[in-house]
Amino acid sequence: MLRSIKKLHKAIAAPIDDLVTYRAIPTQSIEYLDPFLFLNHHGPQTYGPNNRGLPFGPHPHRGFETLTFILAGDIMHQDTGGGQSVIEAGGVQWMTAGSGLIHAEISSDKFKKTGGPLEILQLWFNLPAKYKMVAPTYKGLTKEEIPVVEEDGGKVKVNVVSGSWGDVQGGMQSLSDIHMASINLEAGGSFTTSIDAARTVFFYVVSGQVQVNNKVVPKLNLVEFGNDGNEIKVEASEDAVILLGHALPYNEPVVSHGPFVMNTEQEIREAFRDYQLGKMGTWEG
């Protein structure tokens, strides 16, 4: 049975300095899709030589995880937990903020010097209460380290980031069994996947246009599904890129304030206090 589609939510323009940005969630039409909290879509745009690069200098996080897809350009990551790497196009970065850390996400010196195309998506996953205060971790995967599954004679390429796709295990396994993939479709390419009806589906069209369960979905749209079926059928009417993931909802209170996502207001106050006391590390970059 095909899942019903409750609504399409168009990403809103939310530029950051000179960085073209669309925010798909949260917006006025949707707060979050438990446990998926936030998606910023940066670019696509082209930077000239001797640019300032990405503007995300040192800032703290607690209580959730971030997954960053680098479609073009690069990101240099550094954090107070010891994580550090430069990931280029086709790669991803997964950070579990957990109990808290400070990190920076900026462009490499090479990119700032030479410039070039840039397109990056960052997705935030909530952590359930039992994992809110786990030790922070970071892992970066290059394009070559992400398993690829081909569907429809190679017209569809599924980059399996976490969880699994059929019998293929992703490059990472999340604490909360979150399955995530980025999928490249050629015009006319199609696939059908089955996702248990109890699980929340995350589906965002990065570029191109697709038909999902018989509904046309243009780029920069987030699809909100019902929980009344398990089949998702996708066909590309033009070359397209989508993010597709799923997870069981936590059904817990979500209290967020800037860089912290917890279950209560008291926990938010504690997060600010711990950050100010240096318990999330001291930035020396």
Rank of each mutant, 00 (worst) to 15 (best):
G153N: 12
L67D: 00
L123I: 11
T264V: 02
P253L: 11
K233N: 13
E145A: 11
D109I: 00
I87H: 06
L248A: 15
I268Q: 07
Q173G: 01
W124T: 00
L118V: 13
D79N: 01
E145S: 03
T80V: 07
P55V: 09
E284G: 13
W165M: 07
I102E: 00
W94G: 11
T200R: 09
V205D: 04
V216R: 12
S99K: 14
D79R: 00
M1C: 07
L141C: 02
H246K: 02
G140H: 04
V212F: 06
Y131W: 09
L185H: 03
G170P: 06
M133V: 06
D18S: 09
N159V: 06
M95T: 15
H41L: 01
L39A: 06
S256Y: 01
H103Y: 14
T200K: 05
V156H: 05
G63W: 05
N251P: 01
G53L: 11
A14R: 11
S182R: 14
G90F: 08
V134T: 14
K215M: 12
A247R: 10
V261G: 00
S176H: 07
V161N: 05
Q45C: 04
G163R: 09
G171L: 05
K130F: 07
P147F: 13
H246P: 03
R273H: 12
L54T: 03
G57M: 15
S164M: 11
A72H: 10
A11W: 08
T193Y: 13
P147E: 04
G171Q: 11
S174V: 06
L39Q: 03
L123K: 02
A11D: 02
H61K: 02
H41A: 00
A104R: 10
I106G: 00
V156T: 05
E119Q: 15
G154K: 04
E224S: 11
Q211F: 00
N263C: 10
T27G: 10
I242A: 04
E150P: 01
W124L: 01
I102S: 01
M1N: 13
H41D: 12
A89K: 12
D17Q: 04
L277A: 15
K157G: 04
K139V: 14
E65I: 02
D239N: 15
V92L: 06
T114A: 13
S190M: 13
